[in-house]
Structures are given as C-alpha cells and as structure tokens.
C-alpha cells in the first residue's frame, strides 16, 4: 500500500496553515514529520486522516483519492494514535486493545473469537502480554503508548499514524517505544509519525518531511534532510549533526546543539 499526498494545502476553514505539500509513504517505511511548534503538523495529520478536508490537492491511497471514502473504509488502511490518551475510566489493557476491533465489528456487532485472536496477536507483537490484565490508568506512560499502538494494530491497518508517540516519555521509555515502532516496519506496516527529536529520524532510519515556516517543506532520507543547515532554517538554532561508530562498528548519527 502507498499513501500519497499531492500538492495539498491544509488548514481550518479558509485559513491555510500549510501549502503545497507532497510526499508518499509505502508500507515497510517510516516517515517522520519534523518541524517547529505551530507549523501545522497536527493539521497535516488531520488532513491525512480525513478529519479535515484538504483545501487543495488530494490524499491518495494506492492511487485512489480518499475524499469520497467512508471513515470505515479508511480505517481499514490507516490507524491513528493520538498524542496522549487517558480514558477516564479504569479500563483493563486487553479491553483497550480489543477496542481496535470496533471498526470491523461495527455499531451493533459483538467481538467473536477471531477478534480475540487478533487482539492477542497485537499484544504479542508489541511485547506487552505481561500487561494484559493490568488497569490502563495505572501503568506507566511508555507502557500506555505501547498499548495504544497495540490497539491500532488490532485494527489491522497497513499504515500507522502516530502523533508524537514519545512526547512526555522518559529516555528509556522513549527508546523502547521507538525500537518497537521500528520493529513494526519489518513486520510490513508503514508508519507516519511526528516527533520533536531529530535524533529519532536517525534511530529509525526514516524518510523525513521537514516542515518549515515561510518555506516549502523538504522531503528525503534522514541523512539528506536532517543537516545542520536545514535544522537552522527550520528551528532557528545551531545544531551539529555528528557521525560516530559504536563498539560494533555500526555508523550512527546524533544531533548535538551547541550553545
């Protein structure tokens, strides 16, 4: 499956927030959206998910314009995980994950054995089977994020749309979530995510869309897009992009701001 956005302009009502955005993501790829606060990352996400109509251009899945798709049809292709979700009631983790089946079960249906199997598989895929009987509101932020991604997987999509999956997570949890996300691509899912940390684009070896204020967005591989110059243009700060080899001789890159 390939999700493409072509010459799109996004915004609320008549206010254009972003213009002339084009990029595509296929299954097996990770695409990171980078950009300063208020540049319109969330708006772009809402347009991708058909929560907002595009003001110009179009969003295509496998070459078909999704403008006339129903929400249920779209939900078979993409699954969305919002930034931080806390259900107001003490749900159990496995029940939360089962809710991913809502799309195929429908308004008046009940989950069948098949749906429970898919739930178990999603839990196993995210490596959180030990959490299955815990109360969702009691577990840690990183665990919660993994649960929400498992919920998205239970929807059986081909593309996951993650809004800042590592926001407000501590360092260990952040690395854990990102490594799980990266593992998903090897299982054949496509991932689109926003992030505030350019390092994560290197960690996941992602395709990057760098959104900028008052300038066209830049698309390309992480190594090409996340450079000192581009980061200066986008964020207005000086950042060194450092390349090093770890103990096993693997090449890795990090961003190091100089103050």
């Amino acid at each position: 499956m390939k999700l493409e956005i072509r010459n799109a302009a996004c915004g609320y009502g008549k206010v254009k927030v972003l213009e002339n955005i084009s990029f595509g993501v296929s299954t097996g790829e990770i695409c990171c959206l980078l950009g300063p606060n208020g540049v319109g990352k969330t708006t772009l996400f809402k347009t991708l998910l058909k929560l907002l109509p595009p003001l110009a251009g179009e969003v295509r899945i496998d070459g078909q314009n999704i403008a006339r798709w129903t929400a249920r049809k779209l939900a078979r292709y993409t699954a969305y995980v919002s930034q931080f979700h806390v259900p107001p009631f003490p749900y159990i983790v496995e029940d939360v994950v089962l809710l991913g089946r809502l799309n195929s079960v429908g308004y008046f249906g009940q989950p069948k054995q098949h749906d429970y199997d898919i739930r178990d598989k999603a839990l196993a895929d995210m490596g959180i089977e030990h959490l299955r009987r815990r109360v969702y509101t009691d577990i840690s932020g990183g665990e919660r994020q993994l649960v929400m991604i498992a919920r998205a997987l239970a929807q059986e999509p081909q593309m996951l749309v993650l809004d800042e999956p590592t926001a407000s997570l501590d360092y260990g949890n952040m690395v854990r979530v990102i490594s799980q996300v990266k593992a998903l691509t090897t299982k054949g899912y496509g991932v689109i995510m926003t992030t505030h940390s350019p390092d994560q684009t290197f960690m996941t070896d992602a395709k990057v869309v760098l959104l900028m204020k008052n300038a066209p967005a830049i698309c390309g591989g992480a190594a090409d897009v996340v450079t000192k110059k581009n980061l200066k243009d986008a964020y207005g700060v000086d950042v060194n992009v450092v390349e090093f080899a770890d103990a096993n001789g693997r090449i890795a890159r990090v961003c190091a701001p100089t103050l």
Binding site: L102, Y107, Q155
Partner: peptide, 20 residues
C-alpha cells in the same frame, strides 16, 4: 451497542479514525 459504546471514551478524532 454494548460493545461499540466503548468508542465514546475515545476523543472524536480517535474514534473517527477507527471508523465510528
């Protein structure tokens, strides 16, 4: 609707993206 009623505990964006 006793199963699908769970969806209202999600915010509208999330439940929309789940197709409800």
């Amino acid at each position: 609707m006793r199963f699908s009623f769970n969806a209202v505990c999600f915010d509208s964006d999330e439940s929309n993206s789940m197709g409800l």
